Amino acid sequence: MLNHHICPMTNYYKPNRFEKLLNCHQLKFNRLNETILTSKIDIYPKSDLDSPNISANNADLIVAAVLMDEMTNLNDLLQTCRALGVRSLIVSDSSNLSESSEDTLHIVKLKPELLNKYLREKKLENYNIVATQNTATNNNLIEYRFAKQTVLLFSNQQRDIPENLKPLLDNTIEIPHNDFQHAQHLLIFKFFKQYY
Rank of each mutant, 00 (worst) to 15 (best):
Q26Y: 10
N11H: 13
L67N: 15
F146P: 00
N116A: 09
P167F: 12
N58K: 14
N164I: 12
R17I: 08
K193V: 08
S101M: 13
Y118D: 02
T137K: 15
E174Y: 14
M1E: 08
Q157N: 10
I173K: 05
L105H: 04
P52W: 10
L152Q: 08
T38Y: 05
T80M: 13
N126A: 12
A59M: 04
T172A: 06
N33G: 05
K166A: 03
L97Y: 09
P162N: 06
T135K: 03
M71W: 10
L77E: 08
K117H: 11
D60T: 11
N3D: 10
P15D: 03
V63T: 05
A83R: 00
D160C: 09
E163K: 15
N53M: 11
I107T: 06
K166N: 05
L105S: 01
P112F: 01
D103P: 03
I36W: 09
L49G: 00
I62W: 00
M71P: 04
E34N: 11
K166M: 06
L169C: 05
R31C: 03
N53H: 12
S98P: 01
Y13C: 01
L165H: 03
L97T: 11
I36M: 11
N33R: 11
N30D: 13
S39G: 05
D103S: 11
D69N: 15
A183K: 02
E143N: 15
L84S: 04
A136G: 15
L186Y: 08
M68A: 12
R87I: 07
I62Y: 02
Q181K: 13
K117L: 12
T150Y: 02
E121C: 02
I6N: 03
N75H: 12
Y13R: 01
E99M: 15
L27P: 00
Q79F: 04
N33H: 09
I62E: 02
F180L: 03
Q79G: 05
V108A: 08
E163T: 14
D48L: 15
S101Q: 15
L37R: 12
S92A: 11
N128L: 09
L114M: 14
C81S: 04
L2A: 14
E113F: 06
D42M: 10
N156S: 14
K190M: 08
Y13L: 08
S98E: 13
V151M: 05
N171C: 06
Q158K: 15
S94H: 15
T137G: 13
N126P: 00
N140L: 06
E113I: 11
K20L: 04
V63W: 00
I161F: 06
L77T: 10
V63A: 01
Y195F: 15
P176L: 06
R31G: 00
H185D: 06
Q133L: 07
N23D: 09
Y118V: 04
I41G: 00
H25V: 08
K28R: 13
N156W: 09
P167H: 12
E102F: 08
Q149F: 01
N30M: 07
E163D: 14
K123H: 01
L141I: 15
I6F: 05
K14C: 06
L105W: 03
L2C: 07
N73R: 14
L168F: 04
L119D: 01
Q181Y: 13
T104M: 10
Y127S: 01
L168M: 04
D170M: 04
